[in-house]
Design a protein around this nucleic acid. Structure first.
Lengths: 90, 90, 90, 90
DNA sequence: GTGGTCTAGACCACA
DNA sequence: GTGGTCTAGACCACA
């Protein structure tokens, strides 16, 4: 059995760094915005951690922190070994 | 990919305190002099903040202020999590 | 105003590494045991992060993860810029 | 304190697959041969797991199994988060 | 081939 | 002088 899922290939919006805010918070907000706007739809997989790290220009650990925030907000579900998936629109 | 860089281990010159000038300005000038004289060459990393604080006998916040001045002067670039690097000679 | 607090200087118990369990979980459990046994009493400050990192032989980030667990368990409170303090016995 | 170490960039010898022997055993033997011949010297870091996986054309799990064998033979030491290092010649 | 843990050590924010 | 963030890149666990 296999499931076809949408995987985002690149950032839908540019991200402007606000030096007064932590990067992982900015990244979490940026991804949340894409979920709210329907760029990332329910059930869609986020790009893989290394891809996100490269797109946002940060280390993998920073992406992990951002994803933790999205999990706390109930926006995504992490399936170990499979990927990170959108749960619902914000 | 990795790059070998020169890291200064200690002060190249002694520093004399002028009580009429802020220490962070003096430290900025002192480091600028080392860049101008080629003691710290383009691409070189400055010593870490705690090391500079100890060598100059000041708090780390004072070093941070001095580095901000050097950034404003376009002499160094701060790369978060990596270090502070010489951009060009003054 | 100042407050006298007890600061632990070294590990009260040895810690045996169980390679099947994450180190930050082991460290959290190990510190919890010291709180339960009264080695670390209410209001006491934990050793500083660098000290704990050295005692447990891990990186600072691993200590941070262990402390996050202790915070979730309601055992300690982190006061940014001041230290980490025992809230209550387990 | 830091130490400069030698890191192997590619295979020193070609490897011929013997279909009657498990690949992870072959890979362990192949690496052991390089240690015995001094291609990988004491203290040297093995190439990273993904690099070895690509060079041998196997999954990373297979490399992990080969490294386990080398550990059992006392030839290498795995330091989590740092790398895998040659302990002594075979 | 994903996400998770971990290192060593950098600068940052707070008190 | 504390804890926090962040890097670059290692091995680990899971599917």
């Amino acid at each position: 059995m296999s499931t076809l899922i949408y995987v985002a290939d690149e950032l839908a919006y540019p991200i402007d760094w606000d030096p007064t805010e932590y990067r992982y918070v900015q990244i979490a907000n940026h991804i949340e915005k894409q979920i709210q706007d329907g760029v990332l739809t329910e059930g869609a997989a986020l790009p893989a951690v290394p891809a996100l790290a490269e797109e946002y220009g940060v280390a993998r650990m920073t992406i992990k922190r951002a994803v933790e925030i999205l999990v706390e907000r109930g926006l995504v579900t992490v399936l170990r070994g499979r990927g990170t998936f959108v749960r619902r629109r914000g």
